[in-house]
Amino acid sequence: MKQEDIDRFVERNLKNFSVNSTGWNEIIRQMLFEFAIGGWNLEKDVFGKEKFGELRCYTYSENPELNETIKSITGKYLALSVETCEICGSEGKKRGVDSWETTLCLNHYLDRKSILDIDDNLNIKIRNKIVLNMKDIAKAEVDYDLQRLSLYKNKLAVHSNEAKSFSWQEPNYYLLLRTIPLHLFPADQQKEISELFQHLEYCEICGHKAVHRKSCLRCHHDQWNESSVFMEDYGEKSNYIKACQMDVFTDEDDYGKYFKYDRSFEKSPDHQILFSHHDLREYEKIHF
């Protein structure tokens, strides 16, 4: 089999893959090369696409032996795709962005995430673009669990139900919720919002003053209690705090990197780290 025949097959079929960018081009080329040396008829086209952050190729052969070879090849490159950024081809992993699953490196993940902030002029910004000024808000509402905030710019927006929405999953969400004047919320929501911020406690895991109803709004860990579940799994409070702190430190889902600039909660200057280097090494052996 001539190299130039394989090259033509690869380049011809590369355009048959519906993917989000060029980051997977090299692994698609490698997959097509393996198709060629695996016995695939070079006159037949191969098609594929990105789905749920994975490289999918549904090509099928009626030859049972060749079909097993093709299944092995496509499985190999599906596994490689979920470790490769769709945009740039560097190391990546599956992530959720705007309710879509995609495989991205950290930089391209952060580029696509909504970064909420409030500047000194009370401008509410998303990715450094002004979306609303606090002084222009005519009405504010929160969901029953306070995890989604809707802001209406004027009476027309209220009447047409056109709101700017923000989620607790965005950095500085609780800073925004705290900053909006209470009188803009319905009367039945004002007390709950006020009490949330008045009764926050310090989290022994991450150190932020963010504990509400026994759960931390910053690191999202439950606080220690002497229930049978906690006692059975950890034995004592210090073991639980150490395990949670190591989970925060290793930051497997890159949550900490995304929330690096979150200013919603103050952090205690007396916060204690309980785990040691030895604890961390043992934790990594188990989890990675």
Rank of each mutant, 00 (worst) to 15 (best):
T250Q: 05
R12F: 11
E266Y: 10
S72A: 10
E68A: 10
R281A: 08
I286P: 00
W224G: 04
E68N: 08
S72P: 09
Y258M: 05
I180H: 08
Q190G: 04
Q169A: 13
E170F: 12
G256P: 01
S264Y: 01
T102V: 12
C244V: 05
I126F: 06
H212Q: 03
K237R: 13
D5M: 15
D233W: 14
E266N: 10
V229E: 08
K191V: 06
E266P: 07
Y234H: 14
G23P: 00
I115P: 12
E226Q: 09
F185S: 07
F265A: 02
K135C: 09
H199P: 05
I73P: 00
R12E: 12
K125I: 13
V229Q: 08
L122W: 07
K125M: 13
P186T: 04
Y261I: 15
F249V: 11
N20D: 12
V19R: 14
E266M: 12
R56H: 11
V131I: 14
S215T: 15
D262S: 05
E226R: 01
E4Q: 15
E284Y: 11
S114Q: 13
S276V: 06
G53H: 05
S167A: 13
E4G: 07
E162D: 14
T102N: 03
K125W: 09
Y283L: 07
L176C: 10
A187H: 14
N121L: 07
R56A: 08
S264L: 09
K93W: 06
Y283G: 05
A187W: 09
C105E: 00
E101P: 01
P186H: 01
I137E: 11
S114G: 14
S21Q: 13
V46I: 10
E162T: 07
L177F: 05
K44Q: 14
S228I: 12
A140S: 13
R213G: 03
D188P: 01
G96M: 10
Y58A: 09
A138E: 15
H220E: 08
Y58V: 09
E83M: 09
S268W: 03
L149Q: 04
Q198S: 15
M231V: 13
W24N: 02
T74L: 03
C216L: 06
T179F: 11
L200A: 06
N63P: 01
G48K: 00
K2V: 10
Y255S: 06
R218T: 15
K135I: 10
S264M: 04
G256M: 12
L116Y: 05
S276C: 07
S238M: 12
L116W: 13
E162L: 14
I27E: 00
L176R: 00
W24C: 01
W24M: 04
L200N: 03
L274T: 10
L217T: 01
F166W: 15
E4I: 13
D222T: 03
F35Q: 02
P64S: 09
K94Y: 04
D98C: 10
A163H: 05
V248H: 02
P181E: 03
W40A: 01
V131C: 04
V211M: 02
D253N: 12
I37T: 15
S72W: 12
Y255A: 05
